[in-house]
Write a protein that binds this DNA or RNA. Structure first.
Lengths: 198, 198
DNA sequence: TGAGAAACAGTCATCCTTGACTGTTAGCGG
DNA sequence: CCGCTAACAGTCAAGGATGACTGTTTCTCA
């Protein structure tokens, strides 16, 4: 009785391994942070040999940079569909809820983790800066889709960056603060937009 | 010709060494980040022996926790005087400028660095959470002192946390974004408060 | 089908960090 | 003035991380 091993092309094998490694890297970033994301730990989680890991990503730096691209791409895959569904979400309050979700995915946590590391790593910083521009554009598209009625409101351009920055700040602070505090913030953002746009 | 060594009490010697170590730790956090803040690097910067370092702070964790207290205390020393000077600063715009400064000191950078590390370190997180409450109260006092005329405005409680969160978010994003972007944000916050309070 | 290349496996030397450990000096109380 | 303790000095072993290196398998293409 021999196990039937499905024949795969080199490209398929390679891509699968690469994916496993990157997924493990993201998991690692979320669970134990940037400092805990060692090549050994990634290799264990991905269940690949050292050779495999080093073959795909010759150095830890290259692994993390690749993770950046992977992460932002994954986030686009999350945000994209939300844009399509945006018309079903009603008004200011629903929009804030949807927006807040995108700041709370595991992906966002992993990105935040790399963001911290980027301050002392030129290579990472450059990679993140580049992707961040696209991410912001995507968030912007999401907002426009969520609030088509307000896009032309004179206060739209004023309020948007502030709320987005505030969400960034709140997402970060969430590490040490209570869920209650987060709920209060959500309500605050909604009230602000009502105040400015209604 | 013998060098005259000033006689110091044990307590003085000890306190001086401790200060040097903590100051070096803060420098280290600012310059090379949490990951780069090794006990060896701190020891080099403080110009103390390994024995001295380990005597005052038996483990790296204790060193970082001590740094948390030191940092928040130092920040209080910075923010405190600002509260007294607040009456000299005029209006919304000046207040925003002052507030923004407190998010840009090296201290804030070091705190942010520890904040990142805290996500995966229970001891640190607890220490930071505790101090953070005081810090927020202090910031609140500063705001009240900066804008005594608006404290009772119905939108005061609405706008304040949002602006503070936004400053947190913006301070963090500054790592990868341009100074121009920061200037735009400053203008935005000012405009928002004018919109809500005037 | 067979040579070659890509994908993967596993080991190893090197470096770095940490904290334990032992030795030394400076101040303090009796 | 003497013994004691806190403050400091310097070394060392253990563990972990990284990437280089060599060996093996799996596909591909001529």
């Amino acid at each position: 009785m021999t196990t039937v091993v499905a024949r795969r092309t080199q490209a398929e094998r390679s891509a699968a391994t690469r994916s496993r490694i990157l997924a493990a890297t993201v998991d690692c970033l979320v669970e134990v942070g940037h400092a805990g994301t060692t090549t050994l730990e990634v290799q264990r989680r991905a269940e690949v040999s050292r050779g495999a890991l080093l073959h795909h990503f010759p150095s830890r730096a290259e692994l993390l940079v690749a993770a950046v691209y992977q992460l932002f791409e994954a986030q686009r895959d999350v945000v994209g569909p939300e844009v399509s569904r945006a018309r079903e979400v009603g008004g200011i309050d629903g929009g804030i809820d949807v927006l807040w979700i995108s700041f709370n995915s595991p992906l966002a946590v992993a990105i935040d983790e790399l963001w911290s590391a980027a301050r002392n790593d030129d290579e990472l910083r450059e990679a993140i800066a580049k992707e961040d521009r696209h991410a912001r554009a995507e968030i912007r598209r999401l907002c426009d889709a969520l609030w088509p009625d307000y896009v032309k409101h004179p206060n739209y351009e004023l309020a948007l960056p502030i709320v987005i920055d505030a969400m960034h700040g709140a997402a970060r602070a969430r590490v040490v603060r209570s869920d209650r505090a987060t709920a209060k913030r959500l309500a605050g953002w909604k009230q602000l937009l009502h105040e400015l746009w209604d």
